[in-house]
Nucleic acid binder design. Structure first.
Lengths: 110, 110
DNA sequence: CTAAACCCTCCCCCCAGGGTCAAGGTCAAG
DNA sequence: CTTGACCTTGACCCTGGGGGGAGGGTTTAG
């Protein structure tokens, strides 16, 4: 992890580390778990905002962040988003290949 | 088209409209063609920078922006990008559905 | 003459941070 | 005690394709 990422999470309200007397941030074990969880979720394409239910699930005392109903809902929303994006990109590929072959044939015939 | 979009294209160096005496932008017929072309290409997911070859092709006197070799290359690059993205999203969907079913079964068993 | 409807430039916002900076704290060796 | 190396802090600008709005000039219809 980079310092930037952790501080960005804090700016998003996902972390609230204690401050030492000299102003340095102090992270406890829970913070470490949260950072790892957020990083994993962001790599799945969720937005920082969409990670909230998972973190609440952890803070509620669960070992896993994804056993709460809200987390399952967040998973399903993300899956639907991914599938819609795949459909869009598939249609886009069709359009592009069509344009390419069209332009190619136009070149050879002209 | 919105004013914002056209001025953004100008900021990217894709358009260079004349200025009237009062400072207003004056667009000629070629500008209109370019704006339409850029908009179409951006809707295909190309970046503003990637539209350069198409515009040069138009300015070179071609009726179509995609008959120049550089345009065909740009199409092929974009197709490859789209295919790679589809592969990534497909793998991501696998991961997400795996996580979802895992979390669901964990809930029912615990 | 005036009000509406244009146009202009300039600035802040999105998202998940990355890069760079000056200022200041901490800790070891000398 | 001081120096140097390393750490942290907040603050600023950058990404792409614009959206939204402020504040001001211009043009046109009534």
């Amino acid at each position: 992890m980079t310092v930037k990422a952790v501080r960005y999470y804090e700016g998003q309200g996902l972390l609230k580390p204690r401050r030492a007397a000299n102003g340095y941030r102090v992270y406890d074990a829970e913070d470490v778990v949260i950072v790892r969880e957020v990083k994993a979720l962001l790599s799945l394409g969720l937005t920082a905002e969409q990670t909230y239910p998972f973190i609440e699930c952890l803070r509620a005392g669960n070992d896993r962040a994804d056993v709460c109903p809200a987390s399952l809902t967040a998973y399903r929303i993300r899956i639907a988003e991914v599938e819609q994006r795949i459909d869009e990109l598939t249609a886009l590929r069709e359009r592009l290949t069509g344009l390419l072959t069209d332009a190619e044939s136009w070149r050879t015939n002209e």
